[in-house]
Computed example of a mutant assay.
Amino acid sequence: MERRTLLRVAVVGTAAAAFGGASWREAFAAGAQPGPSPYGPLEPVNPSGLMLPKGFTSRVVARTGQKVAGTAYTWHPAPDGGACFADGTGWIYVSNSEVPATGGVGAVRFASDGKIVGAYRTLANTNVNCAGGATPWQTWLSCEEVDRGYVYETDPFGVKAAIRRPAMGRFKHEACASDPDRKVIYLTEDVPDGCLYRFKPTVWGDLSSGTLEVMVGATSQTSGPVTWKPVPDPDGSPTATRNQVSGAKRFNGGEGCYYAAGVCWFTTKGDNRVWAYDAATSTISLTYDDSLVNGTPPLTGVDNVTRSSGGDLFVAEDGGNMEICIITPNGIVAPFLRVPNQSGSEITGPAFNPAGNRFYFSSQRGTSGTSGGGITYEVTGPFRR
Rank of each mutant, 00 (worst) to 15 (best):
I324Y: 00
G247Q: 09
G374D: 09
F352I: 05
M1F: 12
E153L: 10
V184G: 04
P180R: 04
I326E: 00
F251K: 01
N353E: 12
F251N: 06
A16N: 10
V305A: 05
A119M: 14
L187G: 08
N321D: 15
G13D: 05
A18D: 08
S23L: 14
L313Y: 07
R273G: 02
P47A: 15
R4P: 01
S209K: 14
P34H: 12
L50V: 00
C264Y: 01
H76Y: 12
A134N: 09
T202E: 14
I324V: 12
D179N: 12
F28G: 09
N125R: 15
S112C: 09
E317V: 07
G356N: 08
D181C: 09
V45E: 02
V245E: 07
G49V: 07
R4D: 15
S142K: 11
A30P: 05
A83G: 12
G224H: 07
P340V: 05
L123I: 11
A83I: 03
R170E: 08
V203G: 04
F266E: 00
K269Y: 02
T370E: 14
C325E: 02
A32W: 06
V263W: 02
T376F: 05
G13N: 01
A62T: 04
M168H: 04
P156W: 11
C195I: 04
A18H: 02
Y120V: 08
D303R: 04
I163S: 07
P79G: 12
